[in-house]
Each structure stands twice: as structure tokens, then as C-alpha cells.
Design a protein around this nucleic acid. Sequence first.
DNA 1: CCTGTTGGTCAACGCTTGTTGGCAACTGTA
DNA 2: TACAGTTGCCAACAAGCGTTGACCAACAGG
Lengths: 186, 186
Amino acid sequence: MPTSRRSDATRAAILEAARERFASDGYERATIRAIARDADIDPSMVMRYYGNKEGLFAAASEIELGLPELGSLPAQHIGAVLVGHFLERWERDEVLTGMLRVGVTNEAGAARMQAIFAQQLGPVTRGVCPDPAEAPRRAALVASQILGMALTRYVLRLPPAVEMSTDEIVAWLGPTVQRYLTAEAP
Amino acid sequence: MPTSRRSDATRAAILEAARERFASDGYERATIRAIARDADIDPSMVMRYYGNKEGLFAAASEIELGLPELGSLPAQHIGAVLVGHFLERWERDEVLTGMLRVGVTNEAGAARMQAIFAQQLGPVTRGVCPDPAEAPRRAALVASQILGMALTRYVLRLPPAVEMSTDEIVAWLGPTVQRYLTAEAP
DNA sequence: CCTGTTGGTCAACGCTTGTTGGCAACTGTA
DNA sequence: TACAGTTGCCAACAAGCGTTGACCAACAGG
């Protein structure tokens, strides 16, 4: 079991092409043939290395949100920091847009998305919201606003949402997220 | 040009089946054959009456949000009323879920969604936000929160979002929408 | 030098898709 | 009754899909 195989470059190329295709086309329209063409490789290699299309998608959709530790931050800025972080992460590449697109079209994609948010956003909220038992609900509220902005801005591309600057978005959404995290339940 | 044709029932059956399929499967996976099977009809009839798949989708996605007149309402309740109305509309049938699903996967779907919100949510905001020139931006913010909740609750089905009651959602999102509509720009 | 493993290509398979055109049955009109 | 238009079904098409298995080239160890 060698630590690095000759085929690692090929595997990586496939994975990168797969991420881009899934991101821009969604699960159904991202064909194995197109991915293979992008990676300059035969479609059958994709099958060999990832078993089938679902396996390829599973491998291509391991995503790190890379959320910061919020514990050390001034409590009243958490919302803005979180919104800013997500916006930056969203604009860095198309991975999250793709995740969103696939999460909507594909059952496995939706499950993957549930897991990502539960595992990575859940703990963050647990540390800052008043009643830890309510953390999942707070996380869902935060997710609804952040994913909603991502949806309107990066996927549906409603013009006013596209035209806003990231600073403006942070200024508008920051207080919302802040409230979802730290306010008493209404 | 008769006012009613014998085939009107067929056309309606096709349209209804199409709406359901587009809603539950998205654009790509909703096949003409499956729609025809649901409507107990030959696939070629779909082509005859709607030209092609895009035409069928266009016909199936004419949607009325049916937003209420907000002008006569107490200004401080607008947010809650709007959120409640959308939730009710969303849970009544699967049409809006379908619109969302198709808007994400399909360019024409996204365009349709832009139009719906511009034409139906835009005027509402224009009447209530401080500076009418900012109405489109306010509408986009409102859309981001409302579509975000719909996304997490009805499409991705994040468990905490599903488990909340509509009253709880109104209580949480109402003030957010209210602020997006009526607060001074931050 | 042989031999087995690995990386990669090629051609094909069975299937589903959107779409088309021909043909039968019915309806309304003259 | 005869005829034109409408409604519907059937069979087929070309294209694209995921997937498979046979085959070749390079390389490794003995």
C-alpha cells in the first residue's frame, strides 16, 4: 500500500473537474463523460477510481467550511464575523455554490449538506447561544439566512442581491444572524 | 378559435402532472414520459400541445404568489404578515418548492423566479420602505430570508427547520423581514 | 528475461431521453 | 352520407447516458 501512487495526479484532476462540473451544472447534467473530457481522461477511469457516479460525487463533495473559533470574539460581533466569513468562503471558489445546487437536486446532496451544517455550524452555535439545547434551532435559523443570501446572490442571481457589496450585506445580515444566535427566544 | 376545446381536459391534466413532477424531481429528472404517464396520456401529446420540454415548463411555471395589500396594515406587523403569508402559500401545495428547485437547476427557471419576485414582491416593498429607490434592494433582502427558510425547511429539510412550527418561524423571521423593509439603511 | 501489477485507451453494451411522423378513431358540419 | 378537422396512440429515430470488459504500454521484482 504505497503512500503515493502514480495515478494520484489523475485522481486529483478528476476530482477537480468533477467539483467544477457539479458546481456549474448540478448532479444530473454533470455527466461523467464531460468530467472526463475536462480532465483529459477516459470516462472509464472515473469508474475505475470512484466506482460510479455517486461515489465520485461523494468524493467530490467533502467540504470544509473552515469556520473560525467564535469563543474568543466580542460577543456582539459574532453575527457580522460569521456572515463575512461565509461570504468570503462563498466567493473564493464555486464549491459551495455547487454544494447548494446539488443539495437541491439530489437526495444524497441534501443529506451531505445537512451533515456539513450540523457538524460544522452546530458546534459554533452551541458555544454562543443562551440555551445549548436550542443550539440546533439557532443554527438552522442562521443557515436559513446565510443560505438564502447565497441562493439569491450566487445561484438565482437576483440583480439587487448581486449588486450589493459584501460590506453592505454584512451590515444588513450581521444583526439578523446575531439575533438568531444570541437573542432570547421570542 | 373555439372558446373551449375537447382537449382542454387533457391539456390541464398534462399541466398538473408537469407541475408535480417538476416540483418533486427538478427540471432534468422530470421526464416528459413520466409526466405523460402520470396524466395517462401519450408522450407525443405533450409535444403536440406544448411544443417541447421548455415550452411545457414555461406553461407549468406561471405562478401567482397572491401577496396581500400591505398598505392598510399596521406598519409594525408587516414583517410577520408577510412571513406568515409565504409560509401558508408554501405549504398549500408543492408549486413554490418546485419553482425553487427548477430555479436552481435551470437557467430559464432562474429567470422565471427573478421575474416573479420582481413583479410581485417589488411593488409591495415599494409601498412600505422609507426610500422607494431602495425598494428593489429591500425586496432582495426579504427574498433572501424567505427563500432561505423555504430552502432549509422544504427542500434540504434540515431537521430543526422542519420541526419548528409556523408560529415559531413567524416569530423569528417576522422581525427580520420587518427590519429589511422599514429600518433605515445601516 | 520473464511475469505480474498498475495506468490508461478503445469500442461497445443496454438503456433512457426528447422528439417525430404516420395512422386510426372520433366529432361536427354541410 | 361525405368530408375536414381534431384527438389520440404507436413505433421509431438519433443522441446521450452510465457502465463494462477486452486490450495495450509501462514498469517492478525476481
